[in-house]
Design a protein around this nucleic acid. Sequence first.
DNA 1: CTGAAAGCGCTTACAG
DNA 2: CTGAAAGCGCTTACAG
Lengths: 361, 361
Amino acid sequence: MNSKDIARIAGVSRSTVSRVINNYPNVPPETKEKVLKVIREYNYVPHASARMLRGKSSKTIGLVIVDLKKNSDIHKVYDNVYFGPFTTAVIDFANQLGYNVLVITVYKTRDYKKVREVFYNKTINGAIFIGVKNDDPDIKNLIEAGLKTAVIDQEIREDEDDAFNKSIIVNMDNVNGAYEATKYLINLGHTEIAHITGDMEKLSGFARLEGYKKALKEAGIPFKSSLVVKGDFVEESGYKAAYKLFKKAKPTAIFASNDQMAIGAMHALEEMGFKVPEDVSIIGFDDITISRYLKPALTTMSASLLQMAELAVENLIKSIEEEIAITAKFVVPVKLVERESCKRIEMQREKINDKYALTMK
Amino acid sequence: MNSKDIARIAGVSRSTVSRVINNYPNVPPETKEKVLKVIREYNYVPHASARMLRGKSSKTIGLVIVDLKKNSDIHKVYDNVYFGPFTTAVIDFANQLGYNVLVITVYKTRDYKKVREVFYNKTINGAIFIGVKNDDPDIKNLIEAGLKTAVIDQEIREDEDDAFNKSIIVNMDNVNGAYEATKYLINLGHTEIAHITGDMEKLSGFARLEGYKKALKEAGIPFKSSLVVKGDFVEESGYKAAYKLFKKAKPTAIFASNDQMAIGAMHALEEMGFKVPEDVSIIGFDDITISRYLKPALTTMSASLLQMAELAVENLIKSIEEEIAITAKFVVPVKLVERESCKRIEMQREKINDKYALTMK
DNA sequence: CTGAAAGCGCTTACAG
DNA sequence: CTGAAAGCGCTTACAG
């Protein structure tokens, strides 16, 4: 069944069939109805490739989920509690606007080849990237080659010539979020506040560290490098970080750069014999689904993934359809979700120290 | 940049360019290398639509996530803790086999239009369906129209003429899983075992009820309809079901048809003043990520989503490429994950009854 | 081994 | 208002 068949059955030319499909104004109602009837009857839908070849848009965007792991291929995205909700939100918004979404996973640098492929072969004309490291050269190349992009979690640049300046950027308000998280602990009376950092190659990694420092500085609390331990956003790194931390320091509170690491740290804390929040307060970032089910439920900073997905999708599609390079930058606000993992302290130092004496000998 | 340009620059005809791209055997090594060099230099990738129009496969499958909600559009897939991991697993396996995946969400029956569209316009030639109700007529139509399909959670039929018999089917071993879950409770000494059912329009809903009944029967425990409450697989329904249940009955254990409902039920139990597992044991199904973080950690039945994704993807692609209707049916085994939410009881009936007297007056 | 040509199914300027 | 024709970028039988 193709437009020729439809034309023959309806007793018109293929031109006319095409005109009614594309809603041209100069088709008389009766002709239009006649053609439409045949189209419906035969479930005819024009061949997408033929239309594209004639210059119509593919109406397809890519969603590129990047999860570069240093050492293993065991870690797959399906572990990731963060990407799922965002992915489905992107699909929903895109579908609403009549766009399909092709989802592509990138675990190693060479997987970017998959993205180049669908871009150069014209399957997609735009893509949303999540999980990317800051200033990623692979994405830069793609942008320079003309791919319309929306990137989540990417530094907003001064340099006008930078490729990322041609991209839509959607970020959480990382600095402020981290600042507020730390300040929240300070207001609770904590001064020995540790930070488990995220992946420092990502904006959300280093920006949250920055917010942490800012809050300390403002409160006149000296920054101690012994209270900062590197993590990489996965649970296990939070677990290890907590052990490392308590080997050299005695914080009363921890700000973890995301919830997954906070969860890992809570496990370590439990193993070491500390109670949360009685002995150590802990706050996370992201408000993933699991956090509310923990005991104690995790206090954390939350940003609307839905809003981020919406901004990315709508602006990307706008930039595709209007054939202009929209360069909008968005910073989505973050708000505190107070639950049970943080506690006010007042001169509890002795108690904590006693505990230490006991646990660590 | 198109094949004509490449041909001109390499000093050959378009035919030859096409031959090297498609790896025809009858191209001399030097010619091949010469052309390849130009292709690489200009980042040339053949236009996917043009190739398709000439009959090449689109190498794209659809992943259709169905989440039909009766009354609201508030409930979106992004809530769903179950679809995320499966989705990324499907994408991974498909990508590995050189296939793209187009993800489509279906919240209302009319959203199936999106699926028909991409099928009839030749964007996809196969699709995987998850979250579908049993014997869904919309999917039946698609199968009959020639879409290659792999369906998750669908009854395996006797009737050879049934459309679903032309589909690949991948199920969890629902009946056995439910049977084992119930038997586990029985072996722990429970006889008053309630069941919160899933959505009875889905295979996993009614098959798990069947397994529950089977275990009771085998143990000689009479089936009581007062111990069975309807749910629909979402958390809130488990919450409500638990309240409803304890209004009319006094079970010492609950088998919830999935983990989300078990979580809802645990909340209700807590509110009603029952301790898990001291007062009431509870077991779920699915082993979603959250379950291991609960306190008490949820005992549940687990099947490998990865394996299911792999079976669906590999067989679907095989059936697409070999142009045959593969009709394989798979039942993925389920295994018990013992955690902390179930407890052996021995003549505790009095205690429980006391508690009741206290709580419910 | 290689090129010229037909044709996949559309859309759209062109002519009437 | 409508049709005939060109052409989008490929692939592949055909001829040499």
